[in-house]
Design a protein around this nucleic acid. Structure first.
Lengths: 242, 242
DNA sequence: GAGCATTTGTCCGTATGTATT
DNA sequence: CAATACATACGGACAAATGCT
């Protein structure tokens, strides 16, 4: 094959790049033009496909690089922390508190926390990184009753679960939902996305184990080009013979 | 805003199309060029974004249409059938048996079925449709011991579970895994994909409830532009107060 | 079936802008 | 500041599929 289509070139380059380690810089668009004797638009179309396949990452002015994507397996039994998973893959995960403000709750959050829509509640905004790359944006809403017992503004920088436990609660994950999506405009900005990148939306409701009352609603958007979620289900009634 | 970028135009068109019912034909590229005073490439870039967002579907020679995407919620409690879900959404799901052949098992399948790699086993190939659109491609491998007890070739057109039950088995889903991916080349052809479309890969191992022996390994690729998978987890220890 | 207009698919060459090094 | 590399947009040309006459 010496006459290239965008798809065939994408496949060819995909195979060629498959062996290289993450972070490697690949040939520039002009080099590829010369190498394959095609126009720049065709080279870009091929590279575009590999970007949507999460294989490449492009940085204007710098070059095109092999993307580092981390598998995060959510099993029905022991859900490991994302932090741990990222560390095990040889990368570093960090989370920063961006903002804490009291805001009227949107309707979705209100129903999850069983309070009136528009009630002013504490909203925490966090941003997660994996090796200097923005990986996710987290929005956490504290239920009204938690306000009275916990001083969020100062201690919230660390784990929210810890803060809740200090407030004499027994926080447990009562419900959660995960689905692939494209983020709304404001989240797109927080994630610094300049193109349509698919994300995971992950919602959870945390309750107090004793009273059953809702304590926390959290909504997270996780870039799919950074993290690859995998769901695994085991039937506990059947042992897996070794 | 009167000078358009591809992204801003995509957003504008996205809002404009949001209200229209699925299947509606939208304005042609030339119409949009005239309406917004931009080049065809810019119009196409904007429409491309909406296609990757699963909002539009394009048919060469015919036009651009609003895509019909069906939510499929997999809850930890009662997993409903895809067939049911599609029907509830007002569409029709159908599955056709494409091929039954005896083939040497690939390694992945062999380990799942606990047999030697390369063992010749019955492989069933199915294709699923949602309203005349290919939705998924299913590959099913029957364990060696099932061969002796069940005549697949004739009856397999209907539910495989039924066939297994007729063979005096008690099939139960022992393990399953789901992850978003891009299909390998051969599956891409079966799904008739002409561009990089993300799919769900869904693997399951079915065992016999009594003996615990592996009966069936199934691997399915489901187009994300047709089905939107949602995972929902409930903590059974906590009742959700109404 | 044949022919034709419409519509999307693919590719090229060029120009200009912007971020990085 | 200059060179490099990716980002964005234009206009043109031809191909291929569809649908109608």
């Amino acid at each position: 094959m010496s006459d290239w289509s965008a798809r065939s070139l994408a496949r060819r380059l995909g195979e060629e790049f498959a062996g290289l380690p993450a972070g490697t810089r690949v040939a520039s668009e002009h080099e590829l033009m010369r190498r394959f004797g095609v126009s720049r638009s065709l080279v870009r179309a091929a590279l575009d496909e590999l970007v949507t396949r999460f294989l490449l990452r492009r940085v204007q002015g710098a070059g095109t690089f092999l993307n580092n994507r981390i598998d995060y397996v959510i099993s029905s039994r022991n859900p490991p922390s994302l932090h741990q998973t990222v560390a095990a893959a040889g990368s570093e995960a960090r989370t920063f508190l961006v903002d804490v403000t009291q805001m009227p709750v949107p309707d979705v959050v209100a129903t999850a926390l069983e309070c009136d829509p528009g009630t002013p509640l504490n909203r925490l905004l966090r941003v997660g990184y994996v090796d200097d790359l923005i990986a996710n944006s987290i929005e956490e809403w504290l239920a009204p009753e938690v306000l009275e017992h916990v001083d969020v503004s100062l201690r919230a920088v660390e784990s929210l679960n810890e803060v809740l436990r200090m407030g004499r609660y027994q926080p447990v994950r009562a419900w959660s939902r995960a689905a692939p999506d494209f983020p709304p405009e404001d989240v797109e900005e927080r994630l610094e996305l300049e193109r349509a990148v698919p994300v995971w939306t992950i919602e959870t409701v945390t309750r107090d184990a004793r009273t059953g009352r809702a304590l926390l609603y959290s909504r997270s958007w996780m870039r799919q080009d950074v993290i690859r979620l995998v769901f695994e289900f085991d039937n506990p009634d059947l042992a897996y013979p070794g």
